[in-house]
Structure formats: structure tokens, C-alpha cells
Simulated scan of single mutants.
Amino acid sequence: MATHNEKGKLAEDLVKEWLSSKGYSFRTANYRYGHAEIDLIFEHKGILVFVEVKFRSGTGFGFAEEFVDYTKRKLLIKAADHYIHEQDWHQDIRFDIVGVYQDKHANINFRHFEDAFY
């Protein structure tokens, strides 16, 4: 596995653990539909939460939320629509972005953007 893929998987695992500790109920990871993939799906306070995870080892090239462009959002929404139909979900949904930042001392920080788009 390429280094960036390993870091991405580690970031997803860290976010899964972090959100679970905040009361989010984990449903699934890496849900795929066509060319789209939703990193993590949770349920929180009656809301289905689709989470896009972005890892950054610094902010020199920008913040995580800046890397979820229009095309990526369209793909996420398409996959979410399929998941909602598949699960027969009839309650609210939301799309979150969680940036995972690692500083030069290997400290991890999270930046959570709830209801980031839709």
C-alpha cells in the first residue's frame, strides 16, 4: 500500500475513534457506489452523518476542507443518495468534513466541519 493510502487509512481510523468518543454511532466505512466512496458513515442524534476525512501533514498546501471540491461533493451526494435508499432512511442527513492534521512533532489534531455542504 502506498504511503499516502496508509496515512489516509490511519486518519480514517483516528476519526472513527474520535467521533465515537463524542457519542457518534459508527455504521460503516469506505462505502462505495460507482466511482464514489464515503469514508465514514455515522448516526448522531437521529441524523445520518456522511464524513469525508482529509489528512494533512501541514497547511502549506491548504486546509483539508479546501480539497472537497464541487466534483467530489457531487460524488459524495450520489453515493449518499444510494445509501439512504438502500437503508430506507427517512430522517435527516448531513455531510461533515474532518481534517486530520499532523504537526512536525507527530501530534494529531482534528478540525471538524459539521454540515459542510449540501
Rank of each mutant, 00 (worst) to 15 (best):
M1D: 11
T3R: 14
N5G: 10
N5S: 15
K7H: 14
A11L: 03
E12C: 02
D13P: 04
E17T: 10
W18C: 14
S21A: 11
K22M: 07
G23Y: 02
F26K: 00
Y33Q: 09
Y33F: 13
A36M: 00
E37K: 01
E37W: 00
I38A: 01
D39T: 05
I41G: 03
I47R: 14
L48T: 03
F50W: 04
V51K: 02
E52H: 01
E52S: 09
T59N: 10
G60D: 10
A64I: 03
V68Y: 05
V68E: 01
V68F: 02
D69Q: 08
Y70E: 15
K72E: 09
K74M: 15
L76D: 01
I77V: 15
A79F: 05
A80C: 05
Q87H: 10
D88M: 14
D88L: 13
I93K: 10
R94V: 06
D96Q: 04
D96H: 01
D96Y: 03
V98Y: 02
V98P: 01
Y101D: 06
D103E: 04
D103F: 03
A106F: 14
A106W: 15
N107F: 06
H112I: 07
H112W: 11
E114F: 09
E114T: 12
D115G: 12
Y118M: 13
